[in-house]
Design a protein around this nucleic acid. Structure first.
Length: 147
DNA sequence: CGAATTTGACCGGCGC
DNA sequence: GCGCCGGTCAAATTCG
């Protein structure tokens, strides 16, 4: 345990609160977010901050899902895939498709429990969610109101 | 046709 | 200076 001061620790519990916000869908991830077992592992992530010159906010989250592309309300475009040593699984790189928004998202599979997905957000959206997950879900069901 | 996706190649920072 | 690892772009392909 020797994390530098310029590093913040985010507990999975924090994610629960975060998920609660995006849990606008009829099927809240809370059901799949069986963090109960994760917490036992004391899974925590670090976020680079403090550094005034670095305004980039990095936040790591762990999610229990079979899919990596979790619709958190933003449009993401995959721009790269790389296999890292840290994990035998490949890592995916996503970027906010929005204009003027250079937020990046990293997605990686767990090495031991492939049932879990590690999502790391880098930066902060300078615009509101263009397409709320909840709306998208409905838009798929509801026909064109235009007629 | 076009945007998003797919996948390889290229480049930069660190260690030796 | 080179090799390794990680991060990003870019061409071809795919899907709507």
């Amino acid at each position: 345990m020797n994390q530098p001061d310029d590093m913040m620790l985010f507990e999975v519990d924090d994610f629960l609160a975060f998920a609660d916000q995006v849990a606008e869908e009829p099927e809240p991830p809370a059901q799949e977010l069986d963090c109960g077992g994760i917490k036992n592992k004391k899974q925590v992530f670090r976020s680079s901050s403090s550094s005034t010159k670095n305004t980039l906010a990095k936040v790591g989250f762990i999610t229990k899902s079979e899919i990596e592309l979790l619709d958190d309300g933003y449009r993401w475009r995959k721009y790269g895939k790389k296999k890292v040593k840290s994990s035998p699984n490949p890592r995916n790189y996503y970027r906010c498709s929005s204009i003027g928004c250079n937020v990046k998202k990293r997605v990686e599979r767990h090495q031991d429990d492939s049932s879990f997905v590690i999502t790391t957000y880098e930066g902060v959206h300078n615009h509101h969610a263009p397409q709320p997950a909840a709306v998208q879900h409905q838009a798929r069901h509801l026909p064109n109101s235009d007629g």
